[in-house]
Amino acid sequence: MSTATNQATDPHAATLATLARVFGDGVFGMSHFRDNLRLFLPPSRLIEVLTVLRDECRFALLAELGATDYLGYPGWTRARFEVHYVLLNLDTAERLVIKTGVDDPKPELPSAVPLWLGADWMEREVFDMYGITFTGHPDLRRILMPDEFTAFPLRKDYPLRGRGERHNFPRLTREES
């Protein structure tokens, strides 16, 4: 574990030390943006790292789970979809962002519902909007769009005005209504 002076300068020092102790080097990449620390993981190591973060680093709350579609993003070389998990330590108010990439044609990730129950609806939303399936999710179905909707509307190759779904209804005339 790190010293107190270290913690004052870097709020993530304790977490990083724990991760280094458990996993050693080379499991995740790291980047900073302002006061955010982002860790990039391969999907295969996602659940074990999240488990350690929850159990040993006391990230009790999954504050946010979302995804991004980087299709056509200038200079993008990583996987097309990126899913991010924002973790919050309720004792120290430390926030940590975990990112992982999944690619076409069959984006698939292990579910985080066994770790945080709150991931349930957030993973359903990511599935609804991007079509990323979470294996092990107890009830993975659409949450916002109607059940008969077939596309994944937040994908970058889905047109903004849709594919005619918004016009696909019967017209009621006054004579028959």
Binding site: R166, F169, P170
Partner: peptide
Amino acid sequence: TYAVVQGIDRF
């Protein structure tokens, strides 16, 4: 957008 009906008088 895809999700909003463009005028209820269509239906």
